[in-house]
């Protein structure tokens, strides 16, 4: 066990921003994806763990603060000097004398940015700058709060790919807040679903998927003609423009996909779709048709 949170309450004024009643544990090697809409309490959770907001309740950890690395949602540094000097003082090392740091700089293609001042970096370069320093901490527990927000699709993909490869085979635990669920499909093995400051569910990603979606989901356009065709199959909660069907076994999956193929309907099949899982977890938590904004 690296981190246990229990009976946690965080208030902003009189409003409860986050409430966690049941114990929530992060163990060594866990890669926890923290999801939820805006105001769900994701960043508040990280801030309370880091002691940046006042809270009531219990946050227990066997790690000291130096063993926790954090990539905040917003990371700013002085613009008075080139990034290299900031990096060197934060990491208490010299780029020229540290092969591990050189490797990371090379890995994130940051060599040319070292001479630039922080305000002259692009969004993606700024994110990579903090990521390099966070990774250099090599902490047993690392938080990434919306590490790819504000980046274009291609930069996001590249960054996530680099993160996935870097952490492959490592035992460090990660807590990743993201609105991009496809990133978490690559990075996370556990999911914490928050909504309006409450825990909807927390657990192994695959188990949660099976709990809320079954064996797999088949997703396609939500046109009325399509709805008629798939009557009789179990429909899941999904974004308004999509229809998501739950398939309980291979035979049903084959039947559904055959039907869609015969009718020339584009579809996507997944056994790890976090977006559909999130919608159904919320629906289960609040009951049918409730809990919507």
């Amino acid at each position: 066990m690296q981190l246990t949170i229990e009976n946690l309450t965080v208030k902003y004024g009189t409003e409860i921003a986050l409430e966690i009643k049941e114990p929530l544990t992060v163990s060594e090697g866990d890669r926890v994806g923290i999801i939820g809409s805006n105001g769900a309490g994701k960043s508040t959770l990280i801030k309370s763990i880091l002691g940046l907001v006042e809270y009531r309740g219990s946050i227990r950890t066997d790690l000291n603060p130096r063993q926790i690395a954090t990539h905040m949602q917003f990371n700013e540094y002085t613009d008075a000097m080139p990034c290299k000097y900031i990096m060197e003082v934060i990491l208490d090392t010299k780029v020229s004398k540290n092969p591990r740091l050189q490797e990371l700089i090379h890995y994130f293609e940051f060599e040319d940015c070292l001479r630039k001042k922080y305000d002259k970096l692009s969004g993606g370069q700024k994110q990579r700058f903090t990521i390099i320093m966070v990774m250099m901490q090599d902490a047993p527990l690392t938080f990434y709060d919306e590490v790819t927000s504000g980046l274009d699709f291609e930069t996001r993909q590249k960054l996530v790919e680099k993160l996935v490869n870097w952490y492959q085979g490592k035992t460090s635990s990660l807590c990743i807040v993201s609105h991009y669920y496809e990133e978490l499909e690559q990075l996370a093995n556990k999911i914490l679903i928050l909504d309006k400051g409450k825990v909807i569910d927390y657990g192994d990603r695959d188990q949660l998927f099976r709990k809320y979606c079954g064996r797999a989901v088949v997703v396609f356009d939500a046109r009325s003609r399509h709805q008629e065709l798939v009557k009789g199959y179990r429909k899941l909660a999904s974004p308004a423009h999509l229809t998501a069907l739950s398939v309980k076994d291979e035979a049903e999956e084959l039947a559904v996909t055959k039907l869609l193929l015969e009718n020339n309907i584009n579809y996507r099949r997944s056994n790890s779709d976090i977006e559909i899982m999130y919608s159904n977890a919320r629906q289960t938590f609040y009951g049918e048709g409730q809990g919507d904004e």
Binding site: Y85, V89, D92, M136, Q137
Partner: peptide
């Protein structure tokens, strides 16, 4: 490999 930081360093002063 956590960073073991000195209380006061020349690099911090230079920074």
């Amino acid at each position: 490999k956590q960073i073991q930081r000195k209380k006061l360093s020349a690099s911090m002063l230079l920074f």
